[in-house]
């Protein structure tokens, strides 16, 4: 085969392969929307994290602002220590509230950040003091059943 035709084919192959990689990175992966490198770390204690997992998203007002990096049990407090990396572009006040929320009824869990009113901003390595644990479905059901049981039985009286 002629050298130039060969080069052309190989060139096309390499361009197609790299194109596929870029397409995977941009359209399939999150490289287009979310930059991993520029982050700062904060952590928070939760009494119960429910089904939260590393890599779960961190959202504020529904916008993705970071990811959970690691989860471990603090044996002094017996609470879960959750480390989060948050995009540098998004700064939050010191008294920001961290909630573990669920997307949809059975969807995956994520951390929602609700900013407070302080003027001082949170720094790398800081602790978010105000947290709310995950809703555990079993607790919810048992709460509901207890409250039902303590109510006067209207249905039966009819």
């Amino acid at each position: 085969m002629e050298r130039t035709t060969l080069d052309l084919w190989v060139g096309m192959f390499v361009v197609a392969g790299i194109g596929a990689l870029v397409m995977l990175a941009m359209k399939v992966g999150n490289l287009g929307t979310y930059n991993v490198s520029e982050t700062y770390q904060v952590h928070a204690y939760f009494s119960n994290i429910g089904g939260l997992k590393p890599k779960a998203s961190i959202r504020s007002a529904g916008v993705l602002v970071g990811r959970v990096t690691s989860i471990s049990l603090d044996t002094e407090r017996y609470e879960a220590n959750v480390v989060m990396s948050v995009d540098k572009r998004y700064q939050f006040p010191k008294d920001t509230f961290a909630n573990i929320l669920t997307s949809g009824l059975l969807g995956e869990q994520y951390i929602g950040l609700v900013p407070g009113g302080e003027t001082e901003m949170i720094k790398d390595g800081d602790l978010l003091k105000q947290t709310q644990s995950a809703m555990v479905l079993e607790d919810l059901i048992s709460k509901f059943m207890y409250s039902k049981a303590s109510e006067p039985a209207k249905e039966e009286s009819k």
């Binding site: 990689l21 990175a25 359209k27 399939v28 992966g29 999150n30 490289l31 991993v36």
Partner: peptide, 19 residues
Amino acid sequence: FWSQMQAAVDFREDIMNGI
């Protein structure tokens, strides 16, 4: 289809590891 894919597929964890 596309947005959930983008939210769940991580470039470094998934795509780079695949490469």
